[in-house]
Amino acid sequence: MRLEWIDDILAVLDSGSLARAAEKRLLTQSAFTRRVRLIEDNIGATLFDRRRKPVSLMPGVQALELELRELSTRLHKLRHTLKTESDQAGKSLSFVCQHALTTTVSPKVVRALTQDRETSVRVRSGNQDECLLQLISKEVDFAIMYAVPDDRMPEPGNAFEAKTIGTDTLIPVCAPALRTKATDAEIPTISYPPEVFLGQVFSRMIAPRLPKGTNALTRAETALTLAVLQYAVDEIGVAWLPHSLVAAHLAEGKLSRVDDVLPAQALAIRMVRLAEAQPEYGEKLWKKLEPVAASSFPTVST
Rank of each mutant, 00 (worst) to 15 (best):
97 C>T: 13
98 Q>W: 03
100 A>M: 07
102 T>L: 14
102 T>R: 15
103 T>E: 12
106 S>R: 11
108 K>G: 12
110 V>S: 00
111 R>L: 05
111 R>S: 11
114 T>K: 11
115 Q>G: 02
117 R>A: 04
118 E>T: 14
118 E>Q: 11
120 S>R: 06
122 R>V: 03
123 V>Y: 04
123 V>G: 03
124 R>K: 14
128 Q>R: 12
131 C>L: 12
133 L>Y: 02
133 L>A: 11
133 L>V: 04
134 Q>S: 06
135 L>S: 09
136 I>E: 12
137 S>W: 07
137 S>A: 15
138 K>P: 02
141 D>C: 13
141 D>V: 08
142 F>C: 15
143 A>P: 04
143 A>L: 07
143 A>T: 09
145 M>A: 08
146 Y>P: 03
146 Y>R: 11
147 A>Y: 05
150 D>N: 11
151 D>E: 13
151 D>A: 13
154 P>E: 10
156 P>E: 01
157 G>L: 10
158 N>M: 02
160 F>S: 02
161 E>R: 15
162 A>K: 15
163 K>P: 01
165 I>G: 00
168 D>R: 08
169 T>Q: 12
171 I>G: 02
175 A>F: 07
179 R>D: 11
181 K>F: 06
184 D>K: 07
184 D>W: 14
184 D>M: 08
185 A>C: 10
185 A>E: 15
186 E>G: 03
